[in-house]
Every structure is written in C-alpha cells, then in structure tokens.
C-alpha cells in the first residue's frame, strides 16, 4: 500500500492536471445543459402553456432536461473512469488491469451461492484484475436484479463483487452471511437459523463473540470452516465490517474467496455536480479504490506459509 505522502505527491503531479481538464469540461457541459434547459423550459411554459392552457409541453420539456442531464453526467463519469481509474491503478500496482466494460461472469456469481434469490438481469462493469503479491484477484461492480411487477425491479445485489485465490487448500463450502435474525430476535433467531441450511451447509458457531454478533456462518465441514476462519481472519472481517462494509457476505468455494459488498452508489463514480479539484473529494474516491484493492492485504491473503502451491514434500527420513 502506498504511503500518505506518496499519495499526495501522486495527486499533485499526476491527477491534478487531468482533473483540471475534467473540471473545465464538467463546468462547460453543465452550463450548456443548464442554459439550454432554462431557455427551452421558459419558452415552452410561456408560449405554449399559457397560450393553449395545457401543461403537457412543460412536462415534456422537464423530461427532456432530465434525460439530457443524465446523458451528460453519464458521459462525464465514463470519461473520468476511463482516464483516472487506470492511472490510479498503475500507481498502486502496475500488475493491475482495468476493463471499463468488463465484469465477473454470471456463472461465477451464481456458483458463490451468496444470494439465493433468483434474478433475471445481470449487469456488470468496472472490472479490475491482476495480482497483488502472490494472490490473483478480480473485482467489479455488479447490479443483479429481478423483475417483480410489470415495471418495477427488485435488487438482489448491487455493489462490489470480489474474487481471489485463497491461500489454503479446502474442499467444501463455507459461507459468512450477515446475522440479522440473531441481532433482532436473540436466541430464538439463532434457533431458527439452526433450522436453515445454505447450499447444503449447516450453521456453525464460532468462538469470536463480536464476529458472531455480526455474522452467521454455514459450512459443509465445521472443521474446515474453522481452518479457513482463523481467529485472525475473523478479526479482520469484523474490522472490514466496522470500516463501512456493513452487509458483506463471503463465500469460500472452489478454492476461492468470493466477497460481495453492497454499495449504495456507483463504484468509482465522482459526483459530477461537485468540483473534482478537491484533494478531500479525491481522497474519498481513492479510498474506495484502496478498500477494494486493499482487500488482499486486509484479509492477509498473501501469507503463504502453508502447503498450497508449494513443491511436494521431499522425504528426508
């Protein structure tokens, strides 16, 4: 991870010139949309509404304004992502690659079994893939929804989906899910959770009280669950949860760690209505990137003191 001073220097030297250009385009684009919208709304409301006594032209003008505004915002955000994310990633780790329109496949998301609901729309973008230390990882933004009624959509998952090689060998499946029932209903909630099973995995009680307060764990093998969720990893997951990842879900399956972190906003998106030339604003933006890239270090996935990936044991006796 880069230091605070390195980050400041990088911001001043690399990002600031780019951000100044972006800021000029942002102001120009917003001003253009705003001027045109004001003129059109004024004309339509004065000329048509009062003349023909019907508010429809005004409604259409407002709808057009919203449409144009969204278009401009999306285009600005797209440009910013294309230019800045790759630069920041290179600064952090030259081995990382950014694919703006790429995503982690639906099969992999389904195979994680982190969400049991069905869905009929799966969209993803902002794929980052590469290697940190000894660990291959990928993450992207996903929006998985299901059609509920004719026009409404229910969200199954919207946020950051992260997949990394896990540093230990395992065969079964272990799931770490948010614990809502026990926090709400206490022992009764726990008793009800015991009756539930997730993809053939049963409830396992772990000894870290704070971890148990936030999460419930289901595993196909309770010993393997404890092998994967060491006291140290449980503390790290709790820390992650306290640092804002409140509803994270983790699945250990197929030799990989899958982590789903719901987000209420678009990944890597700067607010186009606010100035981009602010070190503080940029720090928040970079903080999100840091959180995603830092998951490998935060979860200590680079420690390779175990047998996985090591040469076979030679006989010495």
């Amino acid at each position: 991870m880069r230091s605070e001073s390195e980050l400041r220097e990088f911001f001043r030297r690399e990002l600031l010139p780019e951000l100044r250009g972006y800021e000029r385009r942002r102001k120009l684009a917003l001003a253009r949309v705003w001027n045109r919208a004001t003129a059109i709304v004024l004309v339509t409301s004065i000329v048509f509404s009062f003349a023909i006594g019907n508010p429809l032209p005004l409604v259409l003008a407002v709808a057009w304004f919203i449409y144009r505004f969204t278009q401009v915002v999306t285009s600005l955000q797209h440009d910013l992502k294309e230019n800045l994310v790759s630069r920041v990633l290179r600064f952090w780790n030259p081995d990382l690659e950014y694919v703006p329109n790429g995503s982690i496949g639906e099969d992999e998301f389904r195979a994680s079994h982190l969400y049991s609901s069905t869905w009929n729309r799966y969209r993803g973008e902002d794929l980052v893939r590469g290697r940190s230390g000894a660990t291959d990882f990928r993450f992207c933004e996903l929006r998985v929804t299901r059609k509920e009624q004719k026009r409404s959509e229910g969200t199954v998952f919207s946020g950051l989906f992260f997949v990394a090689d896990f540093h230990k060998s395992f065969r079964g499946r272990t799931f770490v899910l948010p614990d809502v029932a026990e926090r709400t209903f206490g022992s009764l909630g726990r008793a009800l959770q015991g009756l539930q099973s997730v993809d053939g995995a049963d409830l396992v009680t772990l000894e870290n009280v704070e971890f148990e307060k936030y999460f419930r764990v289901y595993a196909t093998d309770p010993v393997e669950a404890r092998y994967l969720l060491t006291p140290s990893l449980m503390e790290r997951i709790v820390r992650l949860r306290k640092n804002g990842a409140s509803e994270i879900r983790i699945a250990f399956a197929r030799q990989k760690l899958h982590l789903a972190m719901p987000l209420s906003h678009d990944l890597f998106a700067l607010d186009p209505t606010k100035s981009a030339i602010s070190e503080e604003g940029m720090r928040t933006w970079i903080g999100e990137l840091e959180l995603a890239i830092g998951l490998v270090e935060e979860l200590d996935l680079n420690t390779r003191i175990w047998s996985k990936g090591a040469p076979p044991l030679a006989r010495t006796a």
Binding site: I305, S307, A310, L313, T316
Partner: peptide
C-alpha cells in the same frame, strides 16, 4: 526439504 517440512508443519 526443511522448507517443505516447515510448510507442512504450519499446515
């Protein structure tokens, strides 16, 4: 061999 044994022991 010693390194591999240490890894196995950690495991």
């Amino acid at each position: 061999s010693f390194q591999a044994l240490q890894r196995a022991l950690n495991e």
